[in-house]
Nucleic acid binder design. Structure first.
Lengths: 144, 144
DNA sequence: CCATTCTCAATGCAAACGTATCGAAATGGC
DNA sequence: GCCATTTCGATACGTTTGCATTGAGAATGG
C-alpha cells in the first residue's frame, strides 16, 4: 500500500527537518534568563486574550508532561514572569497570566529568536514554499 | 519585509504540527524496553551499511547533546542492543554497531510504531500532499 | 619534529523531565 | 441528594538531560 510508506516517509522528513532547524535555533537562543520551553509558554500566553490560560490548555500546545509544565510554571512565577490566579469558574483550576515583566522579557527575546528563525528557515525556502509548508503543516496538525 | 514574517509563521506551523503528531505517537509508542530517543538511535543505525555509525555522526541526526547521547548508547550497550567497537581508523573514536538483538527489537517496535504514524499522518493528508510535505521538509533541512 | 589547536567520547554535577500518585473539586448516573 | 467516576493541578521519586570539563588522539603549521 503506497500511502502507508508515504506517510512514514513524510513524517520522517518533517521530524528530521525539525531536528535540524531546532538545533540551529536552540544554539542561537538568546538570554540565560529563560529556556526554550519557558519561552514557548510565554509565547502561547501572548497569543491569548488577556494573556492568560489555564495549565491544562497550555499543555495542549506544548510537548511536556503535565507535572513538568506545572513546575515550569512555578519557576516562571517565582521569577515574576507569570502570576497564578484562582479560576472563578473552577475551584480546582488556576489561571496563568503573563505579567508585564514576562511580556517585556518575551518581546526582548522574541526579536532575536525570530531573527534566527528567519535566517535558518527563510534562507532555504522562498515565499511560496513557506506558505505551502505552513498550509500543509496546519492541515496535518488538524486543529482546524 | 514579507519573507521575515512568513518564515516565522511556517516554522511555527511546522513546530506545532510536530508537537501534535509527536504527542499521539509517543502516547502509542510500544514497548517499555526502549524510549523514543533510544528507538531513534536504533533506527538510524539500521539505515547505515553494516548497521554501524560513530557517535559523532549519530549525533547529527538526533536532537540530543553529545554527553546525553554518549550515555544513551551506554544504556543500550548495557542491555545488549548495540555494541561498542574500536575504530581502526581513529583511536579516539568508537563504532556503535547494532546487534542482532537490537535489530530484532527495532523490527518488533517499528511495525507498531509505523502503524501509529500512518494512522495519524496518513489520515490528514493525501498522497500528493504527503509527497509535497516531504519535499519541502527535505529542502528545509538542507542536508542535500 | 614538536607545539598548538582541534576533535572525539566520557564523566561530574545540577537542573529538568516522566511515571505514578495524590487531594480537591467537578461531573454524571441513579 | 449521593456515590462513583473524571478532571485539574501538585508532589514524590527515580531517570534523563544539558553544561562544563577532562583526557586522549588526530590534524595543522612553523
Amino acid at each position: 500500500m503506497k500511502t502507508r510508506v508515504d506517510a512514514v516517509t513524510a513524517w520522517e522528513s518533517l521530524f528530521r527537518a525539525q531536528v535540524a532547524v531546532m538545533r540551529t535555533i536552540a544554539a542561537e537562543f538568546p538570554s540565560r534568563d529563560i529556556s526554550l520551553n519557558e519561552y514557548d509558554v510565554l509565547f502561547n500566553l501572548t497569543r491569548q486574550p488577556g494573556r492568560e490560560l489555564r495549565p491544562r490548555d497550555l499543555n495542549r500546545h506544548i510537548l511536556l508532561a503535565q507535572p513538568s509544565l506545572s513546575r515550569l510554571i512555578d519557576r516562571l512565577a517565582g521569577r515574576g514572569y507569570v502570576e497564578k490566579l484562582p479560576d472563578p469558574t473552577d475551584a480546582r483550576g488556576t489561571i496563568i497570566r503573563l505579567t508585564n515583566a514576562g511580556f517585556a522579557l518575551f518581546r526582548r527575546v522574541a526579536v532575536e529568536h525570530m531573527g534566527s528563525i528567519t535566517a535558518r528557515v527563510g534562507s532555504r525556502l522562498d515565499d511560496d514554499e513557506l506558505a505551502e509548508l505552513a498550509a500543509l503543516c496546519d492541515k496535518l496538525r488538524g486543529d482546524a
